[in-house]
Nucleic acid binder design. Structure first.
Lengths: 210, 210
DNA sequence: GCCATATTCCCCCAACGCGGGTGATTTGCA
DNA sequence: TGCAAATCACCCGCGTTGGGGGAATATGGC
């Protein structure tokens, strides 16, 4: 089995200097082997299957189809290959889209070489390496806003509404009267200054009340 | 300013051996200072303000109120203090609740001592240290299920429904007819074998289709 | 103990949305 | 040249929604 030998790494990166730099770094680390280097996703998608890589180092900003969009395509033709994003971009949207599309980790390019190498190993071991700043952003995305104007009950009910449940069903599941649920919703709408379910959900999500 | 000197660390952990172990480890590392050790959250919440810690090492499983529940209380009395979870538990629910409540990082107790110390520093630098396995779980939580039975349009419409928008509004925003939206919803319900908004949203979320 | 707040419940109303049935057309990809 | 996806159409009945009142009990924080 190939697993007994080196970890097979493929690199997709448009900047030749960086690409060759990574290839040199990884190629000269024992236990690792560079099996393919590509300057575009189109190119990589055509030929990478033959490389049979364990890990793909992928840039997000590439000419043609972007790295983020290419992730599902790579996963389709190489289901067991892990994808590690390696980029200068720290925009929230890119990060979440990359992770949502199936990336196993997200590193920024200022990551020191030895960390990149250990990140590849970490990915193979089932880890999810992230740069410190990225990790903080990902963690922040879970964080609720502590200074919500909504009471506990109101928050609870708005969460239920956000799951699409009817007021009647919410009343039943919380063991309270339908009229009570209506009252809470009226108060929620007043506090958030909205006049519909959708607007309340949006306002609450934007402000991380739910 | 205190910032010019050592990083002030408080420890909340019920097991005396582990607590003293951490205190010894951190107390004997230059640049760090242990300003308080507590065996329960109740105890800590009463006295920790006087310690003025920069970072709190917090166990999640504690007698009395749990570490997870205590996070918002600590953040309330010490808004600028970072909380670093240090525990043996790797249950998804605990992790997400801890991060959602405002924890800055989540480490498991098998983390080597030098990593714990560097994690404290990372937290102070705006990072979000996580054990490899935890990071993978957090990343996985973003990941969509690629083998969805829903088409693109169906997924798109179900996402809109999940925001609480009415069919009419969805039709307007997607520039299609109300009847078309209804058709898609009918197909979604058939595919997911449900008969209501709420059930469709739940089924789709459980299977990570949206 | 007091007072504000949260939580609970009650009535009214009109308009709109929802779930379900059956069917047809066009578009795009393989 | 099919088949799946996406589009639009018209039928029906019932439930839900948003908004207007008002009011009685917890429940805490000071």
């Amino acid at each position: 089995m190939k697993r007994d030998l080196d970890i097979r790494v493929a690199i997709v990166e448009d900047d030749e200097t960086i690409r060759e730099g990574y290839a040199f770094l990884i190629g000269n680390t024992s236990g690792y082997k560079v099996v393919g280097t590509y300057s575009s996703c189109e190119d990589a998608l055509k030929k990478i299957v033959g490389d049979d890589p364990d890990v793909i180092l992928l840039d997000v900003e590439l000419p043609g189809i972007s790295g983020v969009e290419a992730i599902p395509k790579f996963k389709k033709i190489l289901p067991d290959t892990h994808i590690l994003i390696l980029t200068v971009y720290e925009q929230e949207m890119l990060i979440f889209r990359a992770l949502g599309n199936g990336a196993a980790g997200y590193l920024t390019k200022n990551t020191p070489p030895e960390k990149i190498v250990s990140a590849i190993h970490e990915v193979m071991d089932g880890g999810g390496p992230m740069s410190a700043h990225i990790a903080r952003m990902v963690i922040s995305s879970f964080k609720r806003n502590e200074s919500t104007p909504l009471t506990r009950r109101e928050t609870e009910i708005l969460e239920q509404i956000a799951t699409g449940k009817s007021r009647k069903r919410i009343a039943e599941e919380l063991y309270i009267d339908l009229e009570t649920v209506k009252s809470h919703i009226k108060n929620i709408y007043h506090k958030l200054d909205v006049h519909s379910k959708a607007d309340a959900i949006k306002a609450a999500k934007d402000n991380k009340f739910i």
